[in-house]
Design a protein around this nucleic acid. Sequence first.
DNA 1: ACCTGAACACCGTTCAAGT
DNA 2: ACCTGAACACCGTTCAAGT
Lengths: 224, 224
Amino acid sequence: MYTPYTMSTRGRLSRERILEDALRIVDSEGLQGLTIRRLAQELDVTPMAVYRHFKNKTDILDGLIELVIAEGQATEHDTEGWQAWIEVTFLRMRASLLQHPGVLPLLGSSASYGLQSLRITERLLGKLRGAGLGADAVARGLHLLVSYTLGAVAIEVAAREQQQSAEAGTQQEWQRQLRQRFESADIAEFPNLVALAPKLSRFVEEAEFGLGVRQIIRSLTPEA
Amino acid sequence: MYTPYTMSTRGRLSRERILEDALRIVDSEGLQGLTIRRLAQELDVTPMAVYRHFKNKTDILDGLIELVIAEGQATEHDTEGWQAWIEVTFLRMRASLLQHPGVLPLLGSSASYGLQSLRITERLLGKLRGAGLGADAVARGLHLLVSYTLGAVAIEVAAREQQQSAEAGTQQEWQRQLRQRFESADIAEFPNLVALAPKLSRFVEEAEFGLGVRQIIRSLTPEA
DNA sequence: ACCTGAACACCGTTCAAGT
DNA sequence: ACCTGAACACCGTTCAAGT
């Protein structure tokens, strides 16, 4: 029997395909653009079809985080030297999160204990222990690096959004607007912010993030 | 003319009173519990009355962040010594965010350029410059400390939620469940995670957070 | 100036039914 | 087994009206 509908180019539904479409929607329209109904429309299907593969919307959101983390392949490289390896790994982590800024708010909620996250953590712990660090230094080192990366990306995304909504195309224009805001404030006095604004606004660049990671790595090994 | 309704014990509407009620709802029911309709009900008012004071829901959410930051009074202390002062400031920041975990997802979105945030930043910059650090060290130091704090709190909140939803009352019970999950995983091999689990799960405590902050502070001053 | 009421265009999710 | 259709109890927000 020939059934043209089930043979359509879009193929059949699956967790994978649903998550891919969901991520595309989040990338182009933000997290709030992702609704079950909108997603179903993208999949050429009724909203309820999605519930055959995910138990609810939270389930989809948890899957999205895992997808982004897996896609990033943060630990899939063989950089020489454990310190350089760690640095590259976190640079990749940052890059993959920045590619999907919409999922960031999800990290602060409840997931990140998925299989993909655990795998990356396992590999990082292995590298740090292999470098000869003690158990305490390893644990604190991981915590410092992961926390710094999550926070830095969150700040970077927020800064980019501000910059966009302020219609400040260039960095110079954005700095000019920031300075203006500082100076016209109620208290009218943010001398340090004004003086350091150029340095502070540099932290939306990969190079500066890398310096931060390196500084943390350096602080893990008592020089001797 | 006596008009009992406007003299009610709840008083009149204002931005302040709306934000206070909104924060109470977020604290007790989470961010998704905060709806305009629910908020209006709490205020004994029609949903539309809220729109007289806030242009939309985003406006309310931005206000919430500022309220939490202001309430925290992170810089309102006079601890002796710049390093101790910085440490206390970030410990306070962590504490106030943990008191209102519901607002955390908002930090990763778009605000944090409000007046309260800028004031805290200004004071931190002043302290760091006063300690004799160069402009680059000050900028990177602030970035490291703020990023670390945001990330660490996000992880801490996620961990607490996981712990709660797993109905793991005690730390021991939680560790037992985690270990079980590692060992029953598909790949079945997370040796480092299993070995270090006790150390890793300690990072939901103030003392460990403080150690992280101190390590960053130490890395700012080239020992000499 | 400040609040109300009714309406519009959406949500996530349940349930019973189709093939 | 997998998908549909209709319905339920909600959303944020606009608009015109009341006092």
